[in-house]
Design a protein around this nucleic acid. Structure first.
Lengths: 188, 188
DNA sequence: TTTATTAATAGACATTGTGTTGATTTTCTT
DNA sequence: AAGAAAATCAACACAATGTCTATTAATAAA
């Protein structure tokens, strides 16, 4: 991402696009470096100039996405559950939309379960703080309701990505917010 | 599973146990046939007598689990959302508990995202019918709320498995039921 | 218990992808 | 235009793969 040299950017973009394509067809398990470089017509040696192996490449891509989301989250002040507490959720949906292809691939049928876990952790890290303020007395019992919501959010994201994002990030954020709030009522 | 010969059963059990162990340590990507057979002290050739490769082995294990869950689901009549509509959920929790080690591994950090999808599909297949009866007018708009609940259920399962199942399958089924019901109210 | 069957083992094999290296060519930046 | 850096090409040892054949051991059924 950082590199300024056109050649590096072009090579990495090329490889990334090829990987996203391959991930729609098969699992990362069955994807070889040779296969990827052959497909996008890049020398295999060039691949090793940038990545240690396929998994390293996947990880680097995930790192970038996670970092972007992380930055978006921390750009918002920690506020209790209320009217505007879902503004950071909207940002997340926007980031995902801006990286639709690779995100779909990473969360889809042949995706990476550890990326899924990282997304959950990101959401968790932030919203745990919020929840602690909103339901201070019940934190112990909320464990299950909370994990229900957490995974539920990821499910929402997956469905939204796999469709054509007909709904706007703003609308999705509002929906997410109300779903969480209602589910949480279970435990009050 | 079917085989009657003790040797086959012993070999398969051994390999399966080894795979579950390895999956707690690393991703399926980094697990080689040689590594697995070395660990459980089985000849590498023997592995190929039963499985095409590591992924084939994983698939066969998943197939068995999915089949068990599928049978459990179809053992229950399709009933509208009500007092007893969650009895099949209880069965699912029981099956998962009976296969705790491998299920934890398959849904955990180094798990298999496609197994996760299969579980979702199984739940989906059955509960879509139920939902169609419960909310017949709103089916179009329910898409997102539904996927929220679907993934939420899997999250619930993951959390329950990774803990020590302190809660009983029955309790979890009731909790699942009320979480779904509350979340669904969002869209009414 | 014996026998026929079937599974597991051991060792060898060609094949394929891996990761690395050094020399050369191409492309970029300034 | 010149120097720097990236991409290419060819070659390499290496390790895991998947397949085979011959041999040994364990099992089920008589």
């Amino acid at each position: 991402m950082a590199s300024t040299d056109r050649r590096v950017k072009k090579t990495k973009d090329c490889l990334r696009k090829g990987l996203a394509e391959l991930l729609e067809e098969k699992g990362i398990n069955d994807i070889t470096v040779k296969e990827l470089t052959d497909r996008v017509d890049i020398n295999r040696s060039t691949f090793y100039l940038h990545y240690r192996d396929i998994y390293d490449m996947m990880e680097q891509i995930e790192d970038e996405l996670v970092q972007k989301i992380d930055e978006a989250i921390h750009a918002h002040p920690v506020s209790p559950f209320g009217e505007n507490s879902f503004s950071f959720i909207e940002d997340i949906f926007s980031i995902l939309a801006a990286n639709k292809e690779i995100c779909s691939a990473l969360l889809g049928e042949n995706g990476d379960i550890s990326f899924l876990h990282r997304i959950e952790e990101l959401l968790s890290e932030h919203s745990l703080k919020v929840l602690r303020d909103t339901f201070p007395d019940k934190m112990g019992n909320l464990k299950y309701a909370y994990s229900f919501c957490l995974s539920g959010c990821v499910g929402l994201i997956k469905t939204w990505l796999s469709g054509g994002h007909e709904a706007s990030p703003h609308h999705m954020a509002k929906l997410t917010f109300s779903l969480i709030l209602n589910a949480m009522k279970t435990q009050r």
